[in-house]
Computed example of a mutant assay.
Amino acid sequence: MVDGLVLRDLHLSTAPSWWPPAPGWWLVAGALLALAFGVLGWRLQRLRRRRRLLALFDAETSGTDANEVVAAISSLLRRAGRRIHPDADHLAGQDWLAFLDQGREVRRFDGARGALLLEGAYRPGLDLDDVADLRAAARERFIEWMARR
């Protein structure tokens, strides 16, 4: 007893339950959920775009005449090159091949593959088997350049 006052024992209240969470936690959960759906949507959009680009490349280069296939590959690579540099379609010869290999450790468009790309549309007696290796390298570079944002 202090100065006539009677002190009572302290009774602690019960701890708040974990459910339902406070409104701030609902906002955090909603923001995380929106972020997860946003990232998932972005990834799916990139995947769909890549598939469309692959289908475009395959459709353009699926001919039976090897010379036409090489011409289509060259055209698609020039179209993709313009996305990287506006004057890329004006490059010719070794400058064009160097531009295709720019930023790569392994040069894919030198030697026979590069010569086939430069001259293949005009070579008589070209076989589709000769173009398969060039087509694979060009497909990879086309997708790499066109899928950029």
Rank of each mutant, 00 (worst) to 15 (best):
G120N: 05
P16F: 07
D130G: 10
L10P: 07
W42I: 01
R78Q: 07
Q45E: 05
A34R: 05
Q94H: 11
W145C: 03
Q102W: 13
A80T: 03
V39F: 12
L10R: 15
V28D: 00
Q94P: 05
R139T: 05
L44R: 15
R51W: 02
R135W: 08
T64Q: 05
W25D: 06
G120S: 05
R49P: 01
E140V: 04
R123P: 06
D3P: 02
R149I: 04
D95P: 08
L128R: 15
E105K: 14
L12A: 12
Q94C: 03
H85T: 08
G63L: 06
G38E: 06
A15W: 08
N67D: 02
L118T: 13
G125A: 11
A15M: 10
L118Y: 10
W18V: 13
N67P: 08
D3Q: 13
A72W: 02
R46M: 02
W18A: 10
P23Q: 04
L97S: 04
L27G: 02
A115H: 09
E119R: 13
H85V: 04
E105S: 03
R46E: 00
D101F: 00
Q102K: 14
R82W: 04
R149E: 02
A59F: 03
N67L: 04
E144K: 15
P21Q: 09
D9Y: 10
A115R: 14
D129E: 12
F99R: 03
R83D: 06
G125P: 05
R123S: 08
R79D: 00
A31D: 03
G114L: 01
A121F: 12
D133L: 12
L76P: 04
L134I: 12
L134S: 09
D133E: 12
R82H: 07
S17W: 10
V131P: 00
V69R: 07
W19V: 08
R83V: 11
I84N: 01
P124D: 14
G120H: 05
D129P: 03
A15F: 09
V39C: 12
E144T: 15
W19D: 11
R141Q: 12
A92H: 11
V2T: 15
P124I: 11
L53K: 14
Q102V: 03
D89Q: 09
P86R: 14
R49M: 00
V6N: 06
L77P: 01
L7W: 14
L118M: 12
V39S: 05
L40Y: 14
G93W: 11
L97W: 08
R49T: 11
L33A: 13
F109K: 01
A36I: 12
R46L: 05
G93I: 11
F57N: 02
L35D: 10
A34F: 06
R78N: 00
W145V: 01
E140S: 08
A80D: 02
A15Y: 08
H90P: 00
G41C: 10
P20T: 07
F109M: 02
R113V: 12
H11M: 05
Q102Y: 14
L53H: 13
A71M: 06
L118Q: 13
L12T: 09
S62D: 13
P21S: 06
P20R: 10
G24W: 03
V106Q: 10
G93E: 01
W145H: 03
A115W: 02
I73H: 00
G111V: 13
L118K: 12
L32K: 13
R52F: 03
